[in-house]
Design a protein around this nucleic acid. Structure first.
Lengths: 367, 367
DNA sequence: TGGACATCTCTGACTGTCCGGGATACCCGC
DNA sequence: GCGGGTATCCCGGACAGTCAGAGATGTCCA
């Protein structure tokens, strides 16, 4: 056994060849004579040579990207969807900012593209633009309806979808961990004394997430002792009337919902947030007034997506993966004025909402 | 903008310094004069310099362990847990095989280590073994109870846990997508005409997975029209009696469970699998006789874990991540003789199980 | 003035890859 | 037989960031 591990150079000296020939021979490059290839590989085997994967990866990247590209560009692709909710723009923006920052750390740049009918690119147009720009990394931003990008010539691209897996095509994806976020949020509420959590969702939103919100909610209700189960309000187009009926009927002591306007509806029923009833936002980028809730961390989502994409590009992997995976990003709990603090726990069961008409909405006191 | 990305060498030329001084200054080494450090870092910022993480990782390895060079080894670490179920060994084996295969493609090798009391390594011992072997990649195999590895000196290692996130420490993890697998499986059953799916779980198992099995099951029950909801049987130690009581009471037409022995219990009640009742295994590595079910694809899980770990090593990222993420692997549906095929759909509601003692179990007909 | 010491910077060596080019052999037409 | 073209095989140079040790310069005190 030699003291030092064998290298291409030590093998080359032994065999009377140059390091390049040895390197090429070990990878079976056709430029090297077949007998030489065999001789080198046999010698490498005998010497117990193992290529240093880090050096191999570094040099490959270094040589390949010489001159041709600056360093690497990633395309962030947004779909122009007319009836997408307005708040999505903020989520997308933060996501792209996170992706761009992480990409830059890794030596890549992010550029934005918009697909769609009005002024956006068509699929064939996008294909040719990406090709002519020499872009191979594609970051697909969340779409409100399931998009179809199967017509893109995917064998040329590495792609990541920033939502749950889509099937057309089935790429790797990055998403918030809604299940875990819901469980963790409910556990916090339980620890603060809330006993009747109520969930209000748009049906389409829950379906998009494969019922992860409602599934986790029900699992918590079933498994957490001391919690009184309330049927979630699954709405197709949430109205004040619908909410008020549900709120009066089930009397939750804390409401979890995307729409922060709901707090005003609760107050319209006589509730005082946070004194008598709590509220938790399921996605704080949608909030219209200060409240507690879940920060789904779009910047972390974008950063992780960029990371995965860069890793694929560095491995020179293109096309649709054999087994598409979803990477889940934890949500961050944010405290706010819509919940009582831990030091002032509620009574075990919150005061019931009066069935009588609403008291006037509380205004902030003038100075 | 400059054509080529700046390097330590180009910065050094610009500043009239040597590459080493620049390199040291960028990392704030105390050997360099403080004013020089500031000058270099300012120039780097202006030039838009970013260290190549791959090169940094390579050189750090090379210089630190001069001679016996780093050759890319990943440690697969198993915990010696006496009361872990026996089937786990098969799951672990397939997982490690998948990880080893993918690691080899990427130029890395996987070696096995066992931690625990009897003959296994203690945490400090593992630490010193890994350190002396120059191993920086750690693949933690699933544990039955939540392990505590926070005593390992994580700033030296990149680690991936092959299960849902653990908190001690909170590393990135790779896991089966139980939620999605359950929904997809139930959808298949519904398409084949099953209307009363029943779920049987060990409580500990569902808790380990943060109620993802039962959460998805309930979500499906609530949202799929035409499905009759049956309460899952959550058991602490499943017995035949307990199962039979539940089976007689709720009369499911198909049972989803980890334990394939349940099929015999069903047959003991007079059911004929698959003619009158179906069965689906929730983890086919546990099956004791042929049946339909979910292949949780441990080899894909291992492969993806290896991929993520290698990516971290190539980026020279060590230590506990700021935001731990979970990567979910899809399960594969496998048909088998415990379900009727799609071409022979069941009647909308399966025949009820007779409350009278069982008919004799059907044997295969002799030729 | 010489030596000990402290502070700061530089040189050398290290990994595997890929492109351009050099060396050699061979073929073909004139 | 010879010039020119082509095919085959191999080599040299350049590249990334790091670290130990060596070199250069300055300071202090006997």
């Amino acid at each position: 056994m030699s003291i030092a591990a064998p290298t291409v150079r030590s093998l080359a000296r032994e065999l009377g060849l140059s390091r390049t020939t040895v390197s090429d021979a070990l990878r079976g490059a056709p430029r090297v004579d077949l007998r030489t290839v065999q001789r080198v590989q046999e010698a490498a085997r005998l010497a117990g040579y193992h290529r240093n994967p880090l050096a191999a990866a570094l040099m490959s990247e270094l040589r390949r990207s010489r001159g041709s590209t600056f360093r690497g560009v990633i395309a962030a692709i947004d779909l122009d969807e007319p009836d997408r909710p307005a708040f999505a723009a903020r989520f997308h923006h933060e996501l792209v900012v996170g992706a761009a920052a992480r990409a830059e750390e890794l030596g890549f740049k992010v550029e934005n593209f918009v697909m769609g009918r009005d002024g956006g690119l068509s699929v064939p147009r996008l294909d040719s633009v990406l090709q002519s720009r020499g872009i191979h990394g594609v970051l697909l931003l969340p779409a409100w309806y399931e998009p179809d990008l199967s017509q893109l010539d995917w064998k040329r691209y590495a792609g990541i979808y920033t939502d749950y897996i889509i099937e057309r095509p089935a790429l790797h994806s990055v998403s918030s961990d809604h299940h875990r976020a819901m469980l963790a949020g409910l556990a916090r509420l339980a620890a603060r004394g809330y006993r009747r959590p109520g969930l209000v969702l748009h049906r389409h939103n829950d379906e998009r997430l494969q019922h992860r919100w409602s599934g986790a909610f029900r699992a918590f209700q079933e498994n957490q002792p001391g919690i009184e189960a309330i049927a979630p309000l699954m709405s197709t187009a949430l109205t004040r009337d619908e909410f008020v009926r549900w709120f009066r009927r089930f009397q939750p002591d804390v409401v979890l919902c995307h729409n922060t306007e709901v707090m005003e509806w609760m107050e319209g029923c006589g509730a005082v947030v946070p004194d008598t009833h709590g509220f938790v936002s399921l996605n704080l980028v949608m909030k219209t007034r200060p409240c507690a809730g879940l920060d789904l961390q779009p910047h972390v989502l974008g950063a992780r997506a960029a990371e995965l994409l860069v890793a694929q590009l560095q491995r020179n992997e293109r096309g649709v993966p054999e087994w598409p995976t979803t990477t889940m990003i934890p949500a961050r709990w944010v405290d706010g004025p819509s919940l009582l603090t831990a030091s002032r726990p509620l009574a075990p069961v919150a005061a019931p909402v009066p069935a009588t008409p609403p008291a006037r909405r509380r205004k902030s006191v003038a100075p």
